[in-house]
């Protein structure tokens, strides 16, 4: 594959560290690329034209409480990350793109024109993280009710709890 993309090696701590055995079933090579937001669309387009036929997965991560994660030099640490897993069926190869998305302006271009299959995944990331995919044809909530407030998978969104009702405790009435 002749592409100008320099596949950044997976950060240490992932699959590279640890088990140094040659045979590692279920542990595929993790090929990670860190494009900036401006490069993101072009980068994915380049992979698209280089045999990556399918966008297997798209999700977001909120690094609010884990800001000092390991990233290659020169990649800024932003709060959100959009993670795209592309799959080449012809080469049986995966590549993962991690795009840093700042909290103040959580907008990334939509991949819908390149991979129509990201439609539901981008809606899910929007719904649960509030990341806006610019150019998505129908960016509405998909899992939460349409009048829901907030984006539940953000780290500053509290976890709801139902108080445990013990036997013998005074009931509500």
């Amino acid at each position: 594959m002749t592409t100008a993309v320099q596949p950044t090696p997976a950060p240490a701590g992932g699959s590279d560290s640890g088990g140094a055995s040659s045979r590692a079933p279920g542990r595929p090579v993790q090929e990670v690329v860190h494009p900036t937001r401006a490069q993101y669309l072009a980068e994915v387009g380049r992979y698209r034209s280089n045999g990556f036929e399918m966008c297997a997965d798209l999700c977001a991560v909120d690094y609010l409480t884990h800001p000092d994660r390991r990233l290659p030099d020169g990649v800024p640490h932003e709060r959100f990350e959009v993670v795209v897993n592309l799959l080449s069926l012809s080469a049986a190869r995966r590549v993962r793109l991690r795009v840093q998305v700042p909290e103040s302006d959580p907008v990334v271009p939509s991949l819908f024109d390149l991979y129509p299959g990201v439609e539901a995944m981008e809606r899910e990331a929007f719904d649960l993280f509030g990341i806006v995919f610019d150019g998505h044809p129908d960016l509405t909530r998909i899992l939460m009710p349409e009048d829901w407030e907030g984006h539940p998978l953000r780290k500053d969104y509290g976890v709801g709890r139902v108080p445990v009702q013990f036997k013998g405790a005074p009931g509500p009435r």
């Binding site: 950060p11 240490a12 701590g13 699959s15 560290s17 640890g18 595929p28 997965d57 995966r94």
Partner: peptide, 10 residues
């Protein structure tokens, strides 16, 4: 679990 991230598919 050591810090890192991984995508596994079956």
């Amino acid at each position: 679990v050591p810090e890192g991230e991984v995508y596994v598919a079956i």
